[in-house]
Computed example of a mutant assay.
Amino acid sequence: MRTDVIVVAAGRGQRAGEGLPKQFREIGGQSVLRRTLTQFAAHPAIRRIQLVIHPDDEELCALATRDLAGILTPVAGGATRQASVRAGLEALAGDPPDLVLIHDAARPFVSAELIGRAIAAAQEHGAAVPALALVDTVKALDAEGRLATGPDRARLRTVQTPQSFRYALILAAHRAHVGAADLTDDAAVAEAAGHAVAAFQGAAENVKLTTPEDFVTAERTALASLADVRTATGFDVHAFGPGDHVTLGGLKIPHEFGLSGHSDADVVLHALTDALLGTIGAGDIGQHFPPSDPQWKGADSELFLAHAIGLVREAGGRIAHLDATVICEAPKIGPHREAMRERIAAIAGLPIGRVSVKATTSERLGFTGRREGIAALAAATVRLPWTD
């Protein structure tokens, strides 16, 4: 059956503390929203994903959805979650699915198994939600603030998303509820329209990020999932030629010569690019940017490094550290070292403490010692999801 997903990402997340809305904050090097969307985009049973966002978040949303397949043009949410979901449902009406899953953007650890259970439950029941049995005993407070006997824990459940429905059922339920009291979830909307809602097994890891403490825990969870730590190296060399500057680490440094190369001949960024490509087994810079291709003549090497960084992130990876060593007699690298670190860190989206730039001479030996050119060595360390 054709199955679409509505991801609700219009909230402000005020309880999560200061900063960006929580769905756009990063955990494990990726925004919460991108992590959520990636799970649905990768599932073979999902046809399309309809995002519902705040109008102020269009640029953040574009960044989070870049290169992801199946993402429809986002629609603006309403003043309440209920209104936002209805906007998402109406956006699908032109080419309606058979089933629809409705998910909170702030639940980034939704698994393929849970998505599969949600689809199966909607097919069988028409309306279903993931639920977990309570672990702790629940008590009530009396008028004096004293603990009193609570409800039977065995009958209670905590409810999660994705909540799953036959599309026509939940659309009609939301339309019928316009103007009525706001309800906390879509199961309540379906129930208000007279539909029975089934429960299926939720997942303990499918937590909703709400408080600053949740983000600390989520960061640990994200890092634990990146158990495949890889290190690779890169090397590049370019000869001196006519010019009045060299480009190193993204900086133009005055010099009596330039560097010869098809691009801007930035040996530092070229070596870092190869190192990053090596961590994911993606070949070398020449395969991605052939020197025989005229479009790369004089190109800014920041494009090459950004491309390699993007490939690492598409693989679900997080860059842990970048290290480069420049080998030359001249120009002097020391006065420019910190600016080079800052530029590389900015390109990679890393704290500067995760970028190292060093320099050495070859004691006047070899082509660098004869001042015929500049070489660079690089190493990159990344964390990737473990795969067999």
Rank of each mutant, 00 (worst) to 15 (best):
M1F: 08
T3R: 06
G13R: 00
Q14C: 08
A16K: 02
G17C: 06
P21H: 05
K22R: 15
Q23P: 08
Q23C: 14
R25Q: 15
Q30F: 13
Q30N: 09
V32W: 00
L33E: 01
T38H: 06
Q50P: 09
Q50F: 02
I53T: 12
L60D: 08
C61M: 09
A62H: 13
L63Q: 15
A64N: 05
R66M: 10
A69E: 12
G70N: 05
L72D: 12
T73S: 13
P74M: 04
V75P: 00
A76I: 08
G77Q: 06
G78S: 09
Q82W: 03
S84W: 06
V85L: 01
V85M: 00
A93L: 07
L99S: 12
V100Y: 03
H103S: 12
D104G: 02
D104W: 10
A105Q: 05
A106V: 11
R107F: 06
R107C: 13
F109T: 04
S111T: 15
A112N: 10
A112F: 06
L114H: 00
G116W: 12
I119W: 08
A120M: 04
G126D: 05
A128Y: 05
A128I: 09
P130Y: 04
L132G: 06
V138C: 13
D142M: 03
A143D: 10
A143T: 05
E144S: 10
E144G: 07
G145R: 07
L147T: 02
T149K: 11
D152Y: 10
R153D: 14
R155S: 15
R157K: 15
T158W: 13
Q160N: 10
Q160M: 10
F165C: 08
R166L: 09
L169Q: 12
A173I: 03
H177K: 08
A181F: 09
D182R: 09
A188L: 13
A188Y: 02
A192Y: 03
A193F: 01
A193G: 07
A198W: 09
A199S: 15
T210E: 15
T211V: 12
F215W: 05
T217R: 14
A218N: 08
E219G: 07
R220E: 15
A227P: 02
T231A: 13
T233F: 12
D236T: 04
F240A: 05
G241K: 04
T247G: 03
G249C: 04
L251R: 10
P254N: 11
H255V: 11
E256A: 14
H262N: 14
S263V: 06
D266Y: 04
L269I: 08
A271P: 00
D284E: 12
P290W: 04
W296Y: 15
A299K: 00
S301W: 01
F304M: 14
E314A: 15
I319S: 03
A330I: 10
P331E: 09
K332G: 08
I333D: 02
R343D: 05
I347R: 01
A348L: 07
A348Y: 04
R354L: 12
V355L: 07
S356V: 12
T360K: 13
S362Y: 00
L365I: 07
T368G: 00
G369A: 11
R371K: 15
G373H: 01
I374H: 00
A378H: 00
A379C: 04
L384E: 11
W386C: 12
D388R: 14
